[in-house]
Every structure is written in structure tokens, then in C-alpha cells.
Design a protein around this nucleic acid. Structure first.
Lengths: 156, 156
DNA sequence: GCCATCTGTAACAAGATAGGTTACGTGTAT
DNA sequence: ATACACGTAACCTATCTTGTTACAGATGGC
């Protein structure tokens, strides 16, 4: 199974939007992520729906943050992209008739639920602003790549 | 992605082998799991390699436990099937150049590693025998399905 | 009004992986 | 010798994320 990278990508984008661009087009973002503008629009649609970003159509349009990064947690974004499955392992069938299988799945579910709780609790406790602060500590002044080197659209 | 059910299936089989059959063929096991004999052999090959089960070829052959269920943990079986990926989410690339992406992935990895540690520690602490005991509590005398109703190969 | 520039979305292709199937080789007991 | 059962390669299928193409709708500048 290919691992779902939407959460990682969206966090990446949000920080760039806050630090480098106040408004960016899907095309600009897609080049930064190494993907396609349609993928960007598709994934960010969930973030727009939950009110974390805004999008403007037409000439001069694009994406912008709708609230501060300190007001957005990893859990918020995880939910905004549709709460995709966290685990790659699990039981084979949902409601097995076999009592042995039920016992096995119950035990596995216990463990998985505990891990899921820990993970989501962690997601809830971390804001995107904290990750941005980590970035600042890594190397001030560094730019992501060439697509972000130029100053971007004039802010007037 | 379809969730990997090999761990669940192998635990299921081990308990049946201990409780109902002392030796079972791949074909019998496959009917019990609702799958194919080749899938059974493919998956159980790892368990044989690690010494948890034995297989005998030829007439009267099949699979049997190589040690007691109290000597096998969930972690043992997880490793025996090749330690498949636990999580369905993760970063998009392994070694990103972008420092923002590095900061994002580091934070996500922190959370994922914590959840993985918890999960594997849980796997390590649970023996297959404990799951079998849970099964006993559910409903004594229950059989998994018709394929296991008849007495099985004569034990002499 | 007209046109370039954006987003929104549907539809479809690509790539990866677990699982299912067929085929055939090998070992073993009768 | 033969039937039985594992070992394994090869190939297909299903599913899901991602990538791509195509086109409709909205917006601002001329």
C-alpha cells in the first residue's frame, strides 16, 4: 500500500503559505509539492470546507490562509482531509462468525485502538505553528526550492 | 488500500491448530480462512522459517505447531510475516530537501514512532495463548465453521 | 464585451500492494 | 507407481492514492 501523504503535504503547504506567500495559486503550490494542480485543489478542498483556507476564483485568485497557524492543529487537518485510515494492518473481515477470529480481532483492535488514541491525541496537541517554529530553528533564510525563490505576487 | 490481514489470519490459524487440529493441510486451512491454499502456504512460510510451525510434505503431510501458544507472542508473528508497514499515512518523500517539509515530517515521525512503539510493545506482551483463552471464555464448544466440524485426519 | 487567469470537478490512467489463481516441480507414504 | 501435500513462480484482480486531461464556471483587466 502506498502511504497516504496528504496530511504531510497539507501541513507543508500551510506553512509555506504563512511564511512565503500570502496567496498562492494551485499551480504554484503543485510545483512546490512536486505534483499536479488538480491534486492540490482536490486535497485542499477539504481544508477550505472546514474554514482553514480560502480560495478565490478568476484572475488574481488563488489560496490563502483563513486563520493563524496557531489556531490549526494536526488533528484539524487530518479530519479536513477526510480522516483516512491510519493503519495498514487489521482484521480480514469486519464481523466474523468464528469465535476464534472474534477473539483475535478483539485483541488486535485493543492494541490498534490504543495506538490510534495516542496518535490522535498527539495530533490534537500539536499546532501547525509549532512545526513552523521548528522550521525556523533549522536554518533561517532557507527557501524550499526555485519555485519559491522569487518574491511572488506583488502585495502592494 | 486494503488492510493487510496476514497477522490476524495467522493468529486465527495458530489457535485452530492448537485447539482442533494437531495437523492441518493448506487446503483445510484455506477453507477455514476463506482463501486459497497457495496464500496459506505463502504466508505460513515465514512462520515455518522462524520455527513456530512445521510443515511436512507428501501423503499425510500438512502443518503443525512447533511450540506451545504460550511461547509465541503477537510480535513474533508480526515479525515472521515480514514486519509489514503498520501505518497507512506518512511523508511523501523520504529525504526532502525543503526544510519546511523536513520539519513537518520530523513532527509526524515523532507521533508515528510513539504509536508504533506502543503497538509493538503491546504485541510483545500478548501471547497467542492469551487470545486462545479469550476464545474459551466466549463460548465453549463452538466450532469455527463446517470445514472444522468433522473430526479431521485420524490421529491413530 | 472579450479574453486571460484561476478554481471546481468529473473522468480516466498510472503505480503500488495484498490477495487470489493457475501451473508445475518436489518430496513422501501407501 | 500413484495419490497426496508442500514450494514456488507467474500472472491476474481489487483497491486506493496519485497523476492527468478536459471542460465548465467565476473574476478582473483591456
Amino acid at each position: 500500500m502506498r502511504r497516504d501523504s496528504r496530511l504531510s503535504r497539507m501541513l507543508h503547504v500551510l506553512i509555506h503559505m504563512d511564511r512565503h506567500y500570502k496567496r498562492a495559486t494551485s499551480d504554484t503550490i503543485s510545483k512546490m509539492l512536486g505534483t499536479n494542480a488538480v491534486v492540490v485543489r482536490r486535497t485542499m478542498a477539504g481544508l477550505r470546507q472546514q474554514g482553514y483556507v480560502r480560495s478565490e476564483q478568476g484572475h488574481g485568485g488563488g489560496w490563502e490562509l483563513a486563520r493563524g497557524l496557531d489556531k490549526i492543529t494536526l488533528l484539524d487537518i487530518y479530519r479536513a482531509i477526510g480522516e483516512p485510515p491510519l493503519f495498514a494492518i487489521g482484521p480480514s473481515v469486519d464481523q466474523p462468525d468464528c469465535l476464534v477470529e472474534q477473539a483475535v480481532d478483539a485483541k488486535l483492535d485493543d492494541a490498534l485502538r490504543a495506538a490510534e488514541t495516542l496518535l490522535l491525541e498527539r495530533f490534537r496537541s500539536v499546532t501547525v505553528a509549532e512545526i513552523a517554529a521548528d522550521f525556523d530553528r533549522r536554518l533561517p533564510g532557507h527557501q524550499c526550492n526555485a519555485h519559491w525563490e522569487h518574491p511572488g505576487p506583488p502585495e502592494i
